[in-house]
Amino acid sequence: MEQKIEKSARKHPAHRHLKKLQKIKRKHYHPIIHEIHKKHNISKKTLFYVKEYGPHSHIPQTIIRESLRILLFASLISSLGGLTLENIKNIFVTIVPLIVALPVINDMIGNYGTVISSKFSTMLHEGLVKTKWWKTSELRKLFLQIIVISTVTALLVSAMALAIGGLSNYFIDVSAVTKITLVIVFDVIILVCILFLMAVFAGLYFFRKGEDPNNFLIPITTSIADFGNMCILSILVILIF
């Protein structure tokens, strides 16, 4: 059955054009993209992916060329975050539940960055994002879903961190519960909003430049998540405690 489908696909006139498209050097825009899109109703995003990673392109070279600079930048940002770790450590040592929560919050924020980035990249590839991106219903839905999920999970993290902190003889009263919950929930919500805006603006920028946003967005959002988490958390601790 599958072989039959493959054979019939090969007979399709668009197949010949796709083969032709793959042979074109990836750096050059060619009118054939527009022609195939018009004539055979194949999405421009599919044509872009075929051209980007087609037989004529050197896949590792393409990925490394597009990713390396941004990965090195992300590494530098994270290392700067590492430098601040020493100062943050001194403040956190007195607040046990926040020490417990720190790696979990870092993971959570990073995860939201990855989900937002990869889903937004796929939306761009599938052509779902409108010129006025804020009017795209899929994007609005994604934002609301992430905000609801991040608030609920932040509350859960606060509860778990307080419970573990309580077990390690940290004094827990109403004031401590309120402060720690506020710090964690505000930190997560502020960072999710920043990540969302960053992913949208950077994603649109790289996509319009003709690059694959997948190669840029995750390093950008995760490094902002890491660095931003340490900064915002310490600001909130100074403000609230």
């Binding site: 992300a74 590494s75 994270s78 975050g81 590492g82 870092n106 995750i218 995760t222 890491d226 340490m230």
Partner: peptide, 11 residues
């Protein structure tokens, strides 16, 4: 090294 190293697997 640690924050960048932990972040790298995601990137």
């Amino acid at each position: 090294l640690l924050p960048g190293f932990l972040e790298m697997r995601g990137n």
